[in-house]
Nucleic acid binder design. Structure first.
Lengths: 343, 343
DNA sequence: CTCATTAATTTACGCGCGTTAAGTTTTTCA
DNA sequence: TGAAAAACTTAACGCGCGTAAATTAATGAG
């Protein structure tokens, strides 16, 4: 195939019979050169497999083609899935995605933004930790780097936001549960890490009141991202102490619900609707595992792909709109009720 | 804090009162300069927040301080977890980890290795796709870059391997199941993507024979990484067709077992041991979600942290051992039986 | 205090590519 | 066919840092 190794663009230009500046132009935009020279370059490219040195390329660019993707917790399949989707979009659009996870730790998130900055990314898609984020650090970062926030909305941070309509999510689940059985109590974490949780609580309260029921909230202690574990421990405790005031438990999110489901099983409570069942349990988010719990979890589905796609599109928009004062648009996707057997 | 922005090492050297080459030396190894000059540099570092341009730094190095981490499927919490752990080790050791996921797609794995190569990483930790990996591509890559394989053993690839002792895993589960009830049948995928699966099958066969039982294998159709879905669909079909020859189902891995568990529930089969239970189900790996299934899944635990730690240590070893012909050492960690309620 | 070490400094080159300016060739189209 | 436009070539500089050689300064044992 190739006779000798190509060491740099100079040599590659030589073997392709094109001058180096033109080759450089080609790599920055293949359409910017005449078709005939493009063909010659691409012919040489096949014969000699050469790739521009990525470090040398990025040294001179003020901005690279890198796109940072930051999620708060990669062990959560939701974020794994959404990260995956965004990665693909980036690659297909000719960017180099770099995936980071804060693993639920504030200091990690700060570190990530720090090292991201030195990668001179064209843009960043950031799902912040939320409550435990260092607001100042986020603000400073977003001031320098075009950033689209997703999943967790943080007031005043980022140039745009894409997430789900928590109000609508909870309206959907509360209305369904009230329509088909006892009005639900709301199970959530005492000090939720994620700002979505606060909006869901508010939505639960308002929806219950609108429907003429008295809202009842059960809170679980716990501050980390081990939601299933917390749901299991605290849910179990609540079952044992008969702390759930109704037979219907609406969990703030599916991961918590998965824990409560396990706790219910352990306590010998049959979960589901209809007679013979002791308790109904529902969640929100349509977590990838929710369809495989026993019983399968009734929930409200997030449109993963839509959030991922829209986030990326929004960033692209931002990028070629330049540093226009960007009318911080926020997109909130509605969810859909997914009726399964748990409620 | 800082008066003017520092643009490069030249300027930073000026404000710190040290020459640029010495500053450069400092950044490559803070211990290589006299304590007094180190103090002066670090004082300036606090006052002026400067960081060497990562691209310029890497341009001249033959090797960078980058370490690639490649997993086959990041939406699998096992890999998310192990990826997370390795990342930490890298950072703590002064390296820059970069996490990639092949998402189960051969072409992606090849692309990842391709772009990894251009990042000139000091080393790579690779959990290959396995059966669907492009062997030639792996071989070519590993010839150029010091690579430690983990999780999936591929004969002759990489300079070392760290994974689990599949033989021992299955011995443990089969012996336990035989000791406490009907000998298990083995539920697995027809064409498993992961080489561990083949070893587990072999271990099942040999262990059953050693114990004087006739092995019985039930295979599920399906070729992708949606193990839960496949387990649910094919397990459900097997239940409906009464294709499971015993009341004890040993699944090749937990994700498959989670699907079978859901299928059992759907078919009205109570899962667990003792009377009143129709079927026992067990798995392998101690998947993070296994303790939250209903009932909680009996399984054999992988030592995530040990695999992650040892993989990284092995790589470090490899790196400062230079290009010594490395006696391709393979480490196989034993598992521990985790008895829960499903079997 | 002297001499031998050890560490820092000065000077200078190179890495691989982006980019620009000036000159040359090719293409396009009237 | 000829001139303008477009694309290319040559030449050269700069990016920010690693690194080497030669020189000077600091350290420390005797």
């Amino acid at each position: 195939m190739d006779q000798r190794k190509i060491r740099n663009m100079e040599e590659f230009a030589a073997v392709s019979g094109i001058s180096r500046p033109t080759v450089s132009k080609y790599f920055n935009d293949p359409d910017s050169v005449r078709q005939s020279t493009r063909d010659r370059i691409e012919a040489a490219l096949e014969a000699y497999d050469y790739r521009p040195n990525i470090f040398a390329v990025n040294q001179n660019r003020r901005l690279t083609k890198n796109i940072g993707i930051v999620v708060p917790y990669l062990a959560d399949p939701f974020f794994a899935e959404i990260g995956r989707t965004i990665e693909r979009r980036c690659i297909d659009a000719g960017f180099s995605p770099i995936l980071f996870s804060s693993h639920g730790v504030t200091a990690y998130e700060i570190d990530i933004l720090e090292s991201l900055r030195s990668l001179k990314p064209a843009g960043v898609l950031l799902a912040p930790l939320g409550r435990t984020s260092d607001r100042a650090a986020l603000e400073k970062f977003c001031a320098d780097v075009p950033t689209v926030l997703f999943d967790s909305f943080v007031e005043g941070i980022g140039r745009a936001f894409v997430g789900s309509n928590n109000q609508q999510f909870v309206e959907l689940s509360v209305e369904y549960l009230c329509r088909t059985g006892e009005p639900p109590c709301f199970f959530e974490m005492e000090t939720p890490v994620n700002p979505n949780a606060r909006r869901r609580r508010a939505a639960y309260l308002s929806t219950m009141e609108r429907l003429g029921h008295s809202p009842q909230i059960v809170q679980a202690k716990g501050k980390n991202w081990d939601f299933e574990k917390i749901g299991y421990a605290e849910g179990g405790r609540a079952f044992a102490e008969r702390a759930f005031p109704t037979n219907t438990i609406l969990c703030s999110n599916d991961r918590l619900a998965i824990g409560v489901l396990a706790a219910a099983y352990k306590n010998g409570l049959r979960v589901g609707r209809g007679h013979g069942h002791a308790v109904r349990i529902a969640g929100h988010d349509d977590h990838p595992f929710s369809r495989f719990t026993s019983p399968p979890l009734t929930t409200v589905s997030q449109d993963y792909a839509a959030i991922a796609d829209r986030s990326f599109e929004t960033l692209l928009h931002l990028l070629d709109a330049g540093d226009g004062v960007g009318d911080h648009d926020a997109t909130f996707f509605d969810g859909q009720l997914v009726m399964r057997d748990s409620a």
